Amino acid sequence: MVIEDPKTNKLIEVEKLPDGTYKVTIYDKKTGEKKTITMSKKDLEKLLKAL
């Protein structure tokens, strides 16, 4: 799943891993910076609600 946040000009890509956690990659379209973090479903839901 890919989500675009027009306010921050970032793309957020979410991928479910076999162990039940989620790999979240955040791309900054302005700088080209890429950050990848792994989080639980509960933390991911908090992140998505904040957008």
Rank of each mutant, 00 (worst) to 15 (best):
M1Y: 01
M1H: 09
I3L: 04
I3C: 04
I3N: 05
I3F: 07
I3A: 03
I3W: 05
I3Y: 04
E4W: 06
D5M: 02
D5Q: 01
D5N: 01
P6G: 13
P6N: 07
P6H: 06
K7Q: 12
K7N: 12
K7M: 11
T8F: 04
T8E: 11
N9T: 09
N9L: 08
N9M: 05
K10L: 05
K10Y: 13
L11V: 10
L11R: 13
L11Y: 05
L11Q: 14
L11F: 03
L11I: 11
I12T: 08
I12R: 00
E13N: 05
E13T: 07
V14I: 04
V14N: 01
E15H: 07
E15I: 09
K16V: 14
K16L: 08
K16Y: 08
L17Q: 07
L17P: 00
P18H: 06
P18G: 07
P18F: 12
P18Y: 10
P18A: 12
P18N: 10
D19A: 06
D19V: 06
G20C: 15
G20Q: 14
G20R: 04
G20W: 03
G20K: 03
T21C: 15
T21M: 11
K23T: 05
K23N: 05
V24R: 00
V24A: 11
V24M: 02
V24H: 00
T25V: 10
T25S: 06
T25P: 00
I26L: 04
I26F: 09
Y27I: 15
Y27S: 12
Y27P: 02
Y27W: 12
K29M: 15
K29P: 04
K30S: 11
K30Y: 10
T31Q: 12
T31L: 05
T31E: 14
G32M: 08
G32P: 02
G32C: 13
G32N: 07
E33P: 01
E33S: 04
K35R: 11
T36M: 08
T36N: 04
T36I: 15
T36S: 08
T36A: 11
I37H: 11
T38N: 08
T38A: 07
T38R: 06
M39E: 01
M39Q: 05
M39T: 04
M39N: 01
S40E: 08
K41Y: 08
K41S: 10
K41G: 12
K41N: 15
K41H: 14
K42R: 10
K42F: 14
D43M: 04
L44F: 14
L44M: 12
E45R: 02
E45K: 05
E45A: 08
K46Q: 13
K46T: 14
K46W: 06
K46I: 15
L47E: 02
L47W: 13
L47C: 04
L47H: 02
L48N: 02
L48W: 03
L48Y: 04
L48H: 02
K49D: 15
K49Y: 07
K49E: 15
K49C: 04
A50C: 15
A50P: 10
A50V: 08
L51N: 07
L51C: 07
L51Q: 13
